[in-house]
Design a protein around this nucleic acid. Structure first.
Length: 993
DNA sequence: GCAAGGTC
């Protein structure tokens, strides 16, 4: 039987192998130079076995988002709460993995020797995953040990257990949450604030982490306590008794009074009968305790306080001392020495030192080390102690080594002893006391200069004795604020609230310094930076407790519950993600509060933040229920135009209902309130406008509902009622009567005719089923209504002017099936069509667009006009809704457009329910024409259009050739070849092609 | 370029 044994680090593997083999293990190289292989034979479960022992270096695998979500611009950070993640082996760990894979092949069993803590259990499962992938029928065991001593590891081998999946699961949950939450908030904050404060933050990384933010919170909280502190005056009495140059001050039992007059009265009374009478003299032994065995947190705090070396630097130095073999492993939570440790030997190593050697020797000579014992153990590492002697160090390395040695020796010696005498006196019934101290044995203080304990002399007093005080004074003072936090205070707070681990406190502090969230005010005390302060204030203003420690504390409690099998990891994950997602939604919606707070701190005007597609909230609370399919409809941003929004159905592509919003909509916020008129399916929406064109009518932020209760607003925004509510025939009638002909009448949309369901902004036809007998009445005929007409009784709506959609609308006026300006392309292939121009949907079918295709030769080169092709921007910029389309429709013989000139009649050539229908449009060039539109007589499907409609889609050559624009008398179609009316080019007798 | 946790 051969076992592969894997420890968490090489050091552990080496020592475990040493102990188990009783010093006979053989060492050979693995693929990783840092992780050696140790071989020996020993008995496992009563059987002599071959043992191969190696190690990893902490976590072998890392967690990451799959490729599509790695790029900061690749997605909205919101999706990081759900985006797929995977575990992989980072490149610099591949060698370790390879060693495991190679070595396990020859083994039948696997024994996990990782540290016996939460992370260690998880690392164990990473090792198991890697090994079982190579060899599936392994016998797997877990060795449990509390320290790496011969007794401990041999006992562990004799009591092999099974790895604990619950504990490992807890770590998986922590990792996943840390990654998702950290990445989502960090990307959001960074991407936004870099743009809002380019002068200050263009290059900054504005990170968020569940440990770094509470750490920042501690600094801010203390800063505020200092800032808000209101000093109060107080008064107190003090008695002095000086004889033979020895001055003894007696402190008042009342300590102090906040009322001057009261204090003055008591002072006067004391002065009237000033004789003091000793009422009690108490003498008792007093000791000053030697330090506890050193754990990481204590090392960091004391190094910071006593040596003025910050925690991060301390750990760096300690790591170095450790790898050089001078001290034990510096990351430990243990502050009690295991019984098995050979402390006299360790003390003995130090006896040669000129400064503390004698003290060390004295420990050995006077009964040996008797360390004070703490009550914490990580069951993995002993307290930090020197492992060998050196005097070849310099600088802070020397300082730190010396501190660790002195601390160890102090801990192994005895408490300092003394006698304290407390004398209580009475003057005019007011009590005062003074105390003196006589140190009788300095003990550990001899080797530990970091503690101060000094004698204080006092006169010899006897009970009942009276004397006349030298002075009775009334002193005044003011209460003072607490001190700002030192690094040691900060570490203590982190430890107290469970923020980070002993191994990471220093890193979190370093991080928030590097992020400019905090800084050292005077080399000792932390103050929040402008950025840190503004962030906390921003989150506070949202009512979020991101900077408070309890979010992390709650997670720790949940992780404990998972470890103990009381909670399911999936449940915790789901709960925590839901909690943070909710917070994230709040943050994205109220991010202006962060802007505002930072603006104030920076004294800088925030740039207007225009969200990009990546940063726009998605998966937002539903703005409404889809009237077509009942699914949620959410606000989204156009993929290719970050400036424009639409509200689309979540069941896309099955349902393609969408509400397209004009470019004047700068932002849209879904509120939690529902519309009292339209009902619970419609949320109230808060709009901000991009320009001021409608601000006087709808002052921003304008909150409304788009469910149909405010038709004026819908008309202004050119929102088709049918896309926001299920419109019945009866209410269609009503609405048609009441407010122009805005409402489309379809109730259903099927994906097959999606291409016609969302024209917007284009002054597109309004029609009813009856007007289009060629189309089944259940088929959609959803068109965005033209701007409000016949609004004589209503205030005139100004039409927002588009700032230009930036979608290439200047280049062409061809609209694709998505009702978006199509893209003009050139055939590159060396075919018969090489060099020929054509139009395609610019989004592309693969990206959710349509498969629109049209040769450009006719539509562009011939400059054929077709209002249907009017791009959205020109409709916005040109439309003048003052005209009456109804009146125009009455005059069908010579229909004039908005320019007052006769219009032309053209035919819809676009695929869809209106294909073949004719309508009137402006005859001018596309740059100057108006957006006039009017259907021609219903049912007038001409021979031309019906024949053309029988063409396959994509050939489309007839499109735009509809009217004989410029070829003959306006309003009458003429053949483009022979110029004769009554037929078209395709049916022209002169057409020989 | 993100987190926090291991560790070289």
């Amino acid at each position: 039987m051969k076992y592969l044994n894997v420890a968490e680090k090489n050091d552990a593997a080496k020592n475990i192998a040493q102990h188990l083999s009783r010093g006979t293990s053989r060492r050979r190289e693995g693929y990783s130079q840092y992780n050696k292989i140790y071989e020996f034979e020993t008995e496992v479960m009563g059987q002599q076995c071959q043992m191969v022992m190696t190690s990893v270096s902490g976590h072998l695998l890392a967690l990451e988002f799959v490729g599509a979500y790695k790029g900061w611009q690749s997605c909205n950070p919101m999706v990081l709460f759900d985006a797929p993640v995977f575990k992989y082996c980072p490149e610099n760990y591949e060698k370790i993995k390879k060693t495991l894979e190679r070595e396990v092949r020859g083994c039948q069993g696997l024994i996990i020797w990782t540290d016996c803590d939460r992370e260690g259990e998880n690392i164990g499962f990473e090792i198991i995953d890697v090994c079982t992938a190579v060899k599936s029928n392994l016998r797997i065991f877990r060795a449990k040990f509390s320290e790496i001593t011969a007794v401990s590891v041999r006992r562990a081998l004799q009591n092999l257990e099974q790895p604990n999946k619950n504990i490992s699961d807890a770590v998986d949950v922590r990792q996943e949450l840390d990654l998702r939450i950290g990445a989502a908030f960090t990307r959001f904050q960074t991407l936004r604030l870099q743009r809002v404060f380019p002068n200050k933050l263009a290059e900054s990384l504005v990170s968020y982490g569940s440990c770094q933010f509470p750490t920042l919170g501690f600094v801010v909280e203390r800063y505020r306590a200092v800032e808000n502190f209101v000093s109060e005056p107080f008064w107190k009495l003090k008695i002095n008794h000086t004889i033979n140059n020895l001055s003894v001050d007696f402190a008042w039992e009342r300590i102090r009074l906040f009322d001057r007059d009261s204090c003055q009265v008591l002072h006067d009374i004391c002065l009237e009968s000033p004789q003091a009478k000793v009422c009690e003299v108490k003498t008792k032994p007093k000791s000053k305790w030697r330090p506890l065995p050193l754990d990481t947190v204590e090392l960091e705090k004391l190094a910071s306080r006593k040596l003025k070396i910050n925690a991060k630097e301390t750990m760096r130095l300690a790591e170095k001392l450790y790898t050089q073999g001078f001290i034990s492993y510096p990351r430990t939570e243990t502050n009690e020495y295991p019984k098995e440790m050979n402390l006299p030997q360790l003390v003995g190593f130090q006896t040669g030192d000129p400064n503390w050697g004698a003290f060390a020797q004295n420990i050995l000579d006077t009964g040996g080390p008797t360390p004070r014992q703490g009550n914490k153990s990580d069951k993995a590492h002993p307290p930090i102690h020197p492992t060998k002697y050196t005097n070849n160090l310099s600088g802070n390395e020397k300082l730190l080594y010396e501190f660790i040695v002195r601390s160890f020796l102090a801990c192994c010696s005895k408490d300092a002893q003394g006698q304290e005498t407390t004398v209580t006196i009475e003057v005019a019934k007011e009590k005062f006391s003074a105390s003196g101290l006589m140190i009788t044995a300095r003990n550990y203080l001899e080797v530990y200069p970091y503690d101060k304990w000094s004698s204080k002399e006092i006169h010899v007093y006897e009970n009942g004795q009276t004397f006349n005080p030298t002075s009775i004074d009334m002193l005044d003072g003011n209460t003072s604020p607490p001190n700002l936090l030192t690094e040691a205070d900060l570490i203590a707070l982190m430890e107290k609230h469970g923020i980070g681990t002993d191994a990471t406190h220093a890193e979190h502090i370093e991080t928030i310094k590097n992020r400019s969230y905090v800084a050292l005010a005077d080399a000792i005390h932390f103050v929040p930076g402008l950025l840190g302060m503004g962030l906390v204030e921003g989150y506070d203003a949202m009512g979020l407790t991101m900077s408070k420690p309890h979010l992390r504390a709650q997670l720790e409690a949940d992780l404990k519950a998972i470890s103990e099998g009381r909670k399911q990891p999936q449940q915790v994950l789901a709960e925590q993600i839901a909690k943070y997602r909710e917070a994230y939604e709040t943050v994205t919606m109220e991010a202006n509060k962060i802007d505002a707070a930072l603006a104030e701190r920076f004294c800088e005007r925030p740039n207007e933040y225009v969200p990009t597609a990546e940063t726009l909230p998605i998966n937002m609370p539903a703005a409404m229920k889809c009237p077509k399919c009942g699914a949620d409809m959410v606000v989204r941003q156009k993929k290719n135009n970050a400036d424009e929004f639409y509200i689309s159905c979540m069941s896309f592509p099955n349902c393609k209902n969408a509400v397209w919003l004009p470019s004047i909509v700068k932002s849209i916020l879904v509120l939690s309130d529902t519309c009292p008129t339209c009902g619970p399916n419609y949320k109230m929406l808060k709009f901000e406008w991009r320009n001021n064109s409608i601000s006087h009518l709808y002052p921003p932020p304008y909150t409304t509902c788009i469910g149909g209760c405010d038709t004026t607003f819908l008309e202004l925004l050119r929102i088709n009622l049918a896309s926001v509510r299920a419109v019945s025939d009866s209410n269609r009638q009503t609405q048609t009567t009441n407010s122009t002909r805005m409402q489309a009448n379809n109730r259903q949309v099927t994906s097959s005719n999606w291409t016609n369901t969302r024209p917007r902004e284009t002054p597109a036809p309004v029609m009813s089923a009856r007007q289009n007998p060629s189309v089944n009445s259940t088929q959609p005929r959803q068109f965005v209504p033209p701007p409000a007409a016949n609004m004589n009784n209503q205030p005139r709506m100004p039409v927002p002017r588009s700032s230009g959609s930036g979608m290439g609308t200047d280049d062409n006026n061809v609209i694709c099936g998505c009702n978006q300006p199509a893209k003009l392309l050139v055939v590159k292939k060396q075919t018969a069509n090489h060099g020929k121009k054509f139009y395609k949907c610019q989004v592309g079918k693969d990206n959710g667009g349509c498969d629109f295709f049209l040769w450009a030769s006719e539509s562009v080169e011939n400059q054929v006009q077709n209002p249907y092709d009017t791009p959205p921007s020109s409709s916005w910029s040109n439309s003048t809704p003052s005209h009456s389309r109804d009146s125009a429709a009455d005059n069908s013989d010579e229909v004039k457009c908005n320019c007052g000139i006769p219009s032309k009649k053209v035919t819809v050539y676009k695929e869809g329910p209106t294909k073949g229908k004719q309508f009137y449009g402006c005859t001018k060039d596309m740059g100057s024409r108006c957006d006039f539109f009017q259907w021609a007589d219903s049912g007038s499907v001409t021979e031309w259009s019906s024949s053309s409609s029988s063409r396959g889609r994509g050939q489309g050559r007839g499109r735009g050739r509809s009217g004989g624009s410029g070829d003959g008398p306006r309003g009458v179609r003429h053949c483009s070849l022979c110029k004769q009316p009554g037929h078209t080019r395709t049916r022209c007798p002169n057409n020989n092609s």
